[in-house]
């Protein structure tokens, strides 16, 4: 079953130059798709289009058999409830003036009335926050702290907890490990893998790190200059039919 389908997506910031050029991809339920490319290849723009932060210039994003472009308010709300995100820089992604527990509750409070949680259980705010923190392997006292009291890796766990709190169908991970140190990077990748196992959601994992993508994702797409050059199953990474650019990437790692 397909969670989301991107058809011939186009986006340009400067006339005549497409940041995302005719990209088509689909993500199945419970699948994690990796999107690899250098900085400036358009992978983050693609993510922003998916998240509805940028308007698309052409093509469509299909969710629940309907295009987002002409979705009703209700359908759009349903889409937002099911597509969450984790960004590269956890410090920027948390409001420095809010306690961790308040940041964590943001999506839940927004969609409270429409949610039917299967894994988590809401009895009180306190208990819910503790449950979330526990799921991302953080001590539950952290709920009462402010972001600047946490390390980078801890903050990224918090943003992950916030993203999974409403049990979305898809999480867009935009370079979630790029600003962390090595040991935290490895730990975050492991956490993401185990969360996917328990919660069964899909990932779109965007990164310039082919090895990290390979570790987490079943399928990998390679992007360059706004275009998708190559899409393959993880196990076929060393196939001879790989695109030359993919081979170049592989040679690096």
């Amino acid at each position: 079953m397909t969670v989301i389908e991107i058809n011939n997506l186009k986006k340009s910031y400067h006339p005549g130059k497409l940041a995302v050029n005719d990209v088509s991809l689909s993500i199945a339920k419970g699948e994690s798709l990796g999107l690899v490319g250098e900085s400036g290849c358009g992978k983050s723009t693609l993510a922003r289009c998916l998240l509805g932060v940028e308007k698309v210039d052409g093509g469509s994003i299909i969710y629940n058999e309907r295009s987002l472009a002409n979705a009703s308010r209700k359908a759009l709300r349903d889409y937002r409830r099911n597509v969450q995100t984790v960004f590269q820089n956890p410090t920027a992604a948390l409001n420095p003036k809010l306690k961790i527990k308040d940041s964590l509750l943001d999506p839940f409070l927004q969609f409270q009335d429409e949610l039917q949680l299967e894994h988590f259980h809401f009895s009180s705010k306190q208990a819910f926050v503790e449950q979330l923190l526990e799921t991302v392997e953080l001590p539950k006292e952290l709920g009462d702290r402010y972001p600047h009291e946490l390390s980078g890796g801890q903050k990224q766990r918090v943003t992950i907890a916030r993203a999974i709190s409403i049990e979305p169908k898809l999480i867009v991970l935009d370079e979630p490990t790029a600003s962390l140190d090595v040991l935290s990077q490895g730990a975050i990748l492991e956490l993401l893998a185990s969360l996917q196992e328990t919660l069964g959601m899909s990932y779109l994992f965007i990164s310039h790190d082919l090895a990290a993508v390979h570790q987490l994702c079943q399928r990998i797409a390679v992007m360059k200059d706004g275009e998708i050059l190559d899409v393959f199953q993880r196990d076929n990474i060393y196939d001879n039919s790989r695109h030359d650019y993919t081979k170049e990437l592989i040679s690096i790692f």
């Binding site: 090595v182 040991l183 990077q185 490895g186 730990a187 990748l189 790190d209 082919l210 090895a211 990290a212 390979h214 570790q215 990474i237 060393y238 592989i250 790692f253």
Partner: peptide
């Protein structure tokens, strides 16, 4: 050992 393990690497070719 921890450092080595934390760094994601591609599996070696057959």
């Amino acid at each position: 050992k921890q450092l080595i393990q934390a760094a994601p690497t591609l599996p070696l070719r057959v």
